[in-house]
Nucleic acid binder design. Structure first.
Lengths: 106, 106
DNA sequence: ACATTAGTTTATAAAATTGTAAACAATTAA
DNA sequence: TTAATTGTTTACAATTTTATAAACTAATGT
């Protein structure tokens, strides 16, 4: 497969993390599997919008979906997703610290 | 800081990874620091577009920038960026493997 | 001083992402 | 069978992201 295509697919996976609500969902699912309704309540997102966010995350391989009767349950597909997300959070923290240090100097 | 704001900032950092060209840039910079022109040649991206991509990555804390005379050099700010990017690539690979397996069954 | 080189910034049109509301499907309950 | 519940899908307007081209800034060379 050509490099540019791989880079594009790789970016598509990263895009699935590139939204505040989706980061929040990863955070919620770090502990355990949750049902759709529980995620909706904890995030405060409308069912339509939530369903779309979750389907992006499943499509790109970040989450897996399990249906049981009327209910749908979601969990993180591999701990690599949690780890990557945590690392990106640390990149943010480091940047915030640097900004704080700069303010201290001034 | 409120949770939603943190999630949003965290997502902003992830967005800096969410483009094929920017993934390619991370890949190039995994080995060493590179100058603007070298990145432009290796990626084949126009100087204007490249400058915009690089500035997003610096702004969000993924890269650091060093100017020397007329030249600008870039490197990855912390290995956490490389690690996160590598993990996301592994998530992609795992998804591609699963798709391949599915095709085998059919 | 003037031209050249290296990259940045700005403007803008095209494309992609998002949130909302409404229609829809599938399962369970009465 | 009809109604209720749970989520999905679709349509669409609003916002954001992107690529391109042109104007611009800053440093260096003649």
């Amino acid at each position: 497969m050509s490099d540019k295509i791989i880079y594009h697919l790789h970016a598509e996976v990263c895009k699935a993390l590139a939204h505040g609500i989706r980061i929040e969902i990863i955070d919620l699912l770090n502990d355990d599997e949750l049902g759709f309704k529980e995620i909706a309540i904890k995030t405060g997102v409308s069912k339509s919008s939530l369903s779309q966010h979750l389907s992006i995350m499943v499509e790109k391989g970040l989450l897996t979906q399990r249906k049981e009767g009327l209910n749908t349950y979601y969990k993180i597909s591999t701990s690599k997703v949690s780890q990557a997300c945590q690392l990106m959070r640390e990149v943010l923290i480091e940047k915030l610290e640097k900004t704080k240090d700069l303010l201290h100097i001034l």
